[in-house]
Computed example of a mutant assay.
Amino acid sequence: MTTPRVSLIIPTQRRLDGLATAARSTFLQTGVDPATLELVVVDNDQVPSAEALTRTLAAEAPFPVVYVHEARPGVANARNAAMAKARGDFIAFLDDDEEAPAGWLAALLAVQARYDADVVFGPVRGRAPAGVVKHRAYLEWFFSRVGDGPAEGLIDHYYGCGDSLLRRASLPDAKAPFSAIRNHIGGEDDLLFGGMQAAGARFAWAPAAWVWEDPVPNRLTLDYTIARAFAYGQGPTSHCAAQTPPDRVGMARWMVIGVLQAGVFGLLAGLQGLVSSPRFAFTLDRAARGLGKTLWWGPFKIHFYGLRAPT
Score class of each variant (00 low, 15 high):
P129M: 01
T30K: 15
Y224F: 13
A151T: 15
L108N: 09
A78V: 14
G18L: 03
F282L: 11
A204E: 09
R127C: 14
L295M: 13
P11D: 10
W210K: 05
D173P: 00
D97P: 00
P177A: 11
T311Q: 14
V41L: 07
T21Y: 11
L222H: 04
D247P: 01
L39R: 00
Q112P: 00
A117T: 05
G290D: 08
A229P: 06
D97M: 06
L108A: 06
T311C: 11
V132R: 02
P299V: 13
L271I: 14
V75K: 08
V65T: 11
Y67I: 07
K134V: 15
T283F: 01
A35C: 10
N77Y: 05
R168Y: 08
G235P: 00
Y224M: 06
D96G: 03
T36A: 15
G160T: 12
A174E: 11
V119W: 01
A20G: 10
G266V: 09
A174T: 09
L53K: 05
F93P: 00
T311A: 14
R15V: 14
P246G: 11
G270N: 00
W141I: 14
R182W: 02
P73V: 09
L222C: 10
P278I: 12
D148Y: 00
P215W: 03
A20R: 11
F178C: 09
I155T: 08
T12G: 12
L192R: 01
Q197V: 08
E140F: 00
P299Q: 12
A50Q: 12
D89N: 08
W254T: 09
L109Q: 13
G233R: 00
A58K: 03
L271K: 06
N44T: 11
G122T: 03
D33Q: 08
D285G: 03
L8I: 15
A81R: 01
A106P: 02
G126S: 08
R308M: 14
V32A: 03
Y138K: 08
